[in-house]
């Protein structure tokens, strides 16, 4: 991810940078479509079993999800700040901001994990610990919930890895004034955030 030297097809660095950016945007486009399938499934479930869907949604720990939304939004803002800092030549500040952003990302995963644990104990995990599941649609809702948030958590993990690579081992990408790589990583992190912003109301706040 962090080659900054001019490589083969390109003859100019700015071109190459633009190419990296475009590649990232397209990749994000495909990610959106990936989650799009899940949102379509949620919509169908919501339309066909509105009663159960709302009931199931009401049983979600919306405050945990809410905290997570705030956590992820803040993290995203910090990454945006880091990007500005890098562009302004303040690599150290950028490093700190990224560090905080990563910490928040980890916090997100921790909270998510706690939530899963609570759900396990409550007995609403389909097939594994499903004592409290009432009815097919409730089960479907939980399946969808675990698929969507699980896939999202994988993306968070991926994003954290990328962010981590910006400060460790060398952090050279962070020092680069054009911030190509950092910019792309930030884009990815914003996308992860954005998807959560849609997942949260879809799963937790359906009324």
């Amino acid at each position: 991810m962090s080659e900054r030297a001019l490589h083969d097809p390109f003859t100019r660095l700015d071109r190459q940078r633009e190419a990296d950016r475009l590649g990232m945007l397209l990749f994000l486009g495909s990610e959106v479509m990936l989650f799009g399938g899940l949102f379509a499934a949620a919509m169908v479930l919501r339309l066909q079993h509105s009663h159960d869907y709302i009931a199931a949604s009401k049983e979600m720990h919306y405050w945990l999800g809410g905290i997570n939304t705030a956590v992820l939004l803040t993290s995203s803002a910090l990454v945006a700040g880091a990007l500005e800092a890098t562009r302004a030549g303040r690599a150290r500040l950028s490093g700190w901001l990224l560090g905080f952003a990563i910490a928040l990302g980890l916090a997100f995963l921790a909270i998510k994990g706690t939530e899963y644990a609570i759900e396990w104990r409550e007995g609403v995990v389909p097939r594994f610990s499903d004592a409290k599941l009432h009815g097919g649609p409730h089960e479907l809702f939980m399946v969808l919930y675990f698929c969507a948030t699980g896939l999202h958590a994988l993306h968070v993990t991926g994003g954290l890895t990328l962010l981590g690579m910006m400060i460790w081992p060398k952090g050279a990408a962070r020092a680069e004034r054009e911030a190509t790589t950092l910019g792309n990583v930030a884009l990815y992190w914003h996308l992860v955030d954005l998807i959560w912003i849609f997942l949260y109301p879809t799963l937790y706040l359906a009324r």
Binding site: S30, E31, M33, L34, F35, G36, G37, L38, A41, L45, P126, R127, E139, L140, V143, L144, C147
Partner: peptide, 22 residues
């Protein structure tokens, strides 16, 4: 288009493995 297929196949596979079914 391809990612939509990916997620769809993933859901079918999950349904097959765990018997939980969208």
């Amino acid at each position: 288009a391809t990612p939509v297929l990916s997620i769809t196949l993933l859901l079918v596979a999950l349904e097959r493995i765990f018997g939980v079914g969208i």
